[in-house]
Design a protein around this nucleic acid. Structure first.
Lengths: 204, 204
DNA sequence: TCCTGCATCTTGTCGATGTAAAGATGGACG
DNA sequence: CGTCCATCTTTACATCGACAAGATGCAGGA
């Protein structure tokens, strides 16, 4: 009855790397049921352990969701960074591409995105989550700064907030199923429109 | 042991206007505990009725939340409309003010805003809610159209989406406690900055 | 006036959930 | 080889949403 998912290398504990297995199960549970129907016992069942096993690694449900959100922010940053590189050398183009990455992530992981940005359950006082979230914000701020520096000035905070607001609003509305017309467009056309919209918020 | 909240006019039923009393209790519960800890039994307790009483009026929890979201959208539209009138006669100014109203509503009612825009629990197939939500969208679209018409053209849908995205993103980030600098500003300065940002998205 | 029908509300119950406590298991390490 | 302890399971309990059955009292007709 053992969980033999990966009979690979390290098997540090009793059961295997239960912490990682629970995080994976929680991610699956989140996408399957959404955050509002998220159940700790169901996650434990997915991972093949008793319903009380997660407590040892995460404390309580919110602890698990906090870890999941932190992992989400790290994946978010990586996704955005990869996308940003498609923008080439021009800072403005890079910033727009980073915004598209932000939006694409929200579309691809709507439930996770909602956990990260519209839930009270993750504890942002937790250092790991705070750091991951801060890194995500810093990434956007840096991309804005690069544009401003190129033009010879520091970035007024309002510039960063404008860009963040535009990108985040489009991401949230798309992830929430509003903006049906835009969501139904072929990817290339959708991204072209989004590029135009994002460009409006660029530091001037 | 009767609930004598308003010994005013109509008392249509057994207990009084329980439907309205439950909606009020639910709104209080929502702001107090947030949507993620929202409890039907707690709402019933607030209203002074048994835990099963709400079922008769709303079916289940999601039915209550659906009605609450619909009422939220109606208040949202009213709030935005009142604010829009502060913009005077110029369509562009009116649109910007409507956006500020959108954002102010989100800041004043963060939990309700989240219920309306970031929850799966309200049933948007319910005609009352669908109509109320549609009216909110229509209001923004109309304000955009007024700007475009003034300039002699129809409104490309992308223009509406751009404006909506910008306003919604700022509202959501502020309601979620991101954008701490902006949130900490005195109201006048905050609104001045928001006006600048919103103006970037205006139909050109 | 009385009585019957029925919407309204209460009581009691069920399965599911999150959390805590206590016991079982087995690897690490002296 | 034996002990310790992190890990996991079992058991128990309070709370939750939903359902069913019974109580309450207004309305409308005989």
């Amino acid at each position: 009855m053992r969980q033999e998912a990966t009979d690979g290398p390290a098997r540090p504990y009793h059961h295997g790397d239960l912490r990682a297995a629970l995080l994976a199960a929680a991610a699956a549970e989140l996408e399957a049921r959404g955050i509002e129907a998220f159940s700790l016992r169901s996650v434990a069942k997915r991972a093949g352990v008793s319903h009380a096993a997660p407590a040892h690694h995460f404390g309580d449900v919110n602890g698990l969701l906090t870890a999941l959100a932190a992992e989400g922010f790290r994946r978010f940053v990586a996704h955005q960074a990869a996308r940003e590189d498609r923008g080439g050398a021009d800072p403005a183009a890079r910033l727009v591409e980073a915004g598209l990455g932000y939006i694409a992530f929200a579309r691809a992981n709507p439930a996770l995105f909602r956990l990260m940005f519209a839930s009270d359950r993750p504890d942002f006082g937790e250092p790991a989550l705070a750091a991951a979230a801060e890194a995500a914000f810093g990434q956007l701020a840096d991309a804005c700064a690069a544009v401003a520096v190129r033009r010879g000035g520091a970035v007024p905070p309002a510039e960063v907030e404008a860009t963040w607001g535009i990108v985040h609003g489009l991401a949230d509305l798309l992830a929430g199923g509003r903006l049906k017309r835009l969501a139904a467009l072929p990817e290339a056309e959708r991204e072209a429109e989004l590029r135009d919209i994002i460009a409006r918020g660029l530091p001037r």
